[in-house]
């Protein structure tokens, strides 16, 4: 089922580039926004749920989106652990997207996919950014990618954040380490698409209902 909260004027395909594997990749290819043919295909796929939302830079809306995601995951996932991962990642990615947006609306897309025994999660945000933030973000993502140990990387990040280092990237680090999602970025002239994805084995019950 596809929930479309708001349709922005940016190509939805820009949200969806890389795959978790062929299975999710194929699903992702079908996850363009309603009312495209691809969205209708995904709409017929009862094992996937997705929504996209466009928000103006208002920090107070982040909690509303987080609560909606928690409610949605509570209904379609039978797993509190995966729900918590999605909620944390949604909050931190949207928080960054809203906080650093230079203009226009920020966008977020959340996808939940039933993949045999696993649940596939994709969360993507897109927003306009200035050059300084773009450079900083690239550096943080490169650092994250170069790290071979999520736990060690996060502990170092926590220490930096505790010492008051501005722009320590704690939010992204939290998505990477606490939510356990792989985080990547794609930069255009004045915008950035941040994408977090992962697969998780449900602890009990069906992955999606």
């Amino acid at each position: 089922m596809v929930y479309v909260m708001y349709l922005g004027d940016t190509s939805p395909s820009s949200f969806v580039r890389r795959g978790l594997g062929s299975e999710l990749g194929a699903r992702r290819a079908a996850s363009h926004l309603f009312p495209t043919r691809a969205a209708r295909r995904m709409n017929a796929d009862k094992s996937s749920t997705a929504f996209e939302l466009s928000v103006w830079p208002d920090p107070t809306i982040i909690a509303s989106v987080r609560r909606f995601v928690a409610e949605l995951c509570g209904r379609v996932l039978a797993d509190g652990d995966i729900t918590a991962r999605v909620v944390v990642a949604t909050h931190e990615l949207l928080d960054n997207a809203v906080r650093y947006a230079t203009r226009d609306a920020s966008r977020i897309r959340v996808e939940l996919h039933h993949l045999d025994r696993d649940v596939g999660v994709v969360i993507a945000t897109k927003n306009r950014i200035d050059e300084d933030r773009g450079r900083e973000l690239r550096r943080r993502l490169d650092e994250m990618r170069a790290s071979s140990d999520r736990g060690a990387y996060y502990r170092a990040l926590l220490r930096r954040a505790a010492e008051g280092v501005e722009g320590a990237g704690l939010g992204l680090g939290r998505v990477h380490a606490e939510a356990g999602l792989d985080v990547s970025g794609r930069f255009d002239d004045d915008s950035v698409l941040i994408r977090a994805e992962g697969r998780f084995v449900p602890t009990r019950g069906p992955a999606l209902r």
Binding site: A63, R66, V87, H91, E92, A161, L170, G171, R174
Partner: peptide
Amino acid sequence: EFMSAACLR
């Protein structure tokens, strides 16, 4: 209910 990274910091 929740603690953001900003408050965690």
